Simulated scan of single mutants.
Amino acid sequence: MPAEGAPAASPLEQAVLRALESVIDPEIRKPITELDMVDRVVEGEGGRVEVGIRLTIVGCPASDRIERDVRQAAETVAGAGNADVELSVMTPEQRTALTERLRGGRARTNPFGPGSLTRVIAVTSGKGGVGKSTITANLAVALAARGLSVGLVDADVHGFSIPGLLGLVDDEGLAARPTQVNDMILPPVAHGVKVISIGMFVEPAAPGERASSTAVAWRGPMLHRTLSQFLTDVYFGDLDVLLVDLPPGTGDIAISLGQLLPNAEVVVVTTPQAAAADVAERSGVVARQTGQRIVGVVENMAALVQPDGTLLELFGSGGGELVASRLSTEAAAVPLLASVPLSMALRQGGDSGVPVVVAAPDDPAARAIEQVAAQLSAMPRSLAGRRLDVSVR
């Protein structure tokens, strides 16, 4: 772009600049023209055009895609083969200006606290092994497919599995690494969902071991600090919904969530088994004690329909209804949002990193999860305890 005092842009240069408005940075999800990534557009001889692009960091993982998209956009104006793209890297000052622009000039703060327009939904369970993370991953993708801007925080620090469930791992099980611009972390995107997980920061496994074998052994203060950093340092942009996959039980993370996200709504996941229902109820009680609102229960691993039409109730029946009933009060009924049946496709989607709502949308499990997404999307939000920016004159 012409500097101050330089000749005005030619009609071709102006047209190319307009075309570049359609090029979206795949990590920040904003046009490169808004991010000050366009260094110059210069018309050359014979109608050729040279485009200079400033990448955010050295070794930017999206550089090939950005270069390709810029060339295609420029060639829609200049003609095939008539665009030259040159990549450079932002200066430290330019990166600082970018992060300040993305934060809207605000300091590093939790953007999902009181007054936030983002709906925060925490998914919890009383015990492990009930498929909570699988439900969370599929629910996030189902909400994104409905046109919502969705973020997902994998707060299950000790048992992180969200990267694998969403296909954000390589053949060795190593999770995709976020890009860091100064003190701002750009989350990887999978199936339209912006994702952050502690699994993206653990050190690679020793030679001969799968990356997924790496363990995180942290206690309370470190867990709280990690969740806080995910909320303050990760740039999610403007979200409609932020899902938080909580670890099972009622420990440190559940308590930290109440402090950091006091307006979070909670979905409790259980299985039909009575023993699982008893424990799931406790996680809902703790959520309520920390000031959060329980918006529903999801029963996973419900009855599987056999080829002859009979039901295989491998884990019993009634657990979801039991939890919903026990968590309901006179002031607020807690609905059973859906019963998700046992499903080979659901399990296979988790193993392959392609959620069942994408891989097999007609599967009964996928339809049940879509039912949850539809209900949550239509559910009115509570304004209790929320600061409203209005004044009376």
Rank of each mutant, 00 (worst) to 15 (best):
A6V: 00
V305F: 04
A83H: 08
I162L: 03
V354D: 05
D36T: 13
F315A: 00
V51Q: 05
I53F: 06
E93I: 10
A345S: 14
F315H: 01
V298A: 04
Y235K: 09
D245T: 04
E265G: 02
G79A: 09
T91S: 12
V85P: 06
L223P: 10
I369Q: 12
A73E: 00
G164P: 01
G251C: 08
D25P: 02
R18E: 11
L165G: 07
R71D: 03
G159M: 10
G349I: 11
R68N: 14
M344H: 11
A145R: 15
V295N: 05
Q289G: 09
G249H: 03
D252I: 01
S116R: 07
V49C: 04
P31H: 03
V356S: 08
G105F: 05
P341R: 00
A8Q: 11
Q259P: 07
R146K: 13
G296N: 11
D170R: 12
R54T: 14
V356N: 04
R29M: 15
G128C: 04
G113V: 13
I255S: 03
Q273A: 07
A360Y: 10
V295Q: 11
V49M: 05
A144N: 04
V77M: 00
R71A: 07
A280Y: 10
L223A: 15
N82T: 11
A373E: 06
V372F: 11
T310A: 13
Q229W: 07
D351S: 02
G258C: 03
I198S: 12
A83W: 04
E209A: 15
P187N: 00
L168I: 03
S197K: 03
D156N: 11
V41W: 08
P7A: 14
R347S: 13
M1E: 13
L311W: 13
G46W: 00
V390A: 13
V298H: 09
L312P: 07
N182K: 07
V41N: 09
V41A: 11
L242K: 01
A80G: 12
T226Q: 09
S197N: 10
I135M: 00
L35A: 07
D64C: 10
P61Q: 13
S377W: 02
Q375E: 02
A176G: 08
V285F: 04
G220R: 08
L260K: 01
L17A: 10
G59W: 09
R95T: 10
A137F: 06
L117I: 09
E370Y: 02
G199S: 14
A142E: 08
I294Q: 08
E172C: 07
S325M: 13
A264Q: 05
I57M: 08
E86C: 03
L117A: 13
D308R: 01
A6T: 02
G349D: 11
D84I: 02
G104R: 08
A338M: 04
A83S: 06
P262G: 09
V357C: 14
G131N: 01
I24E: 14
M90V: 02
Q72I: 13
G208V: 02
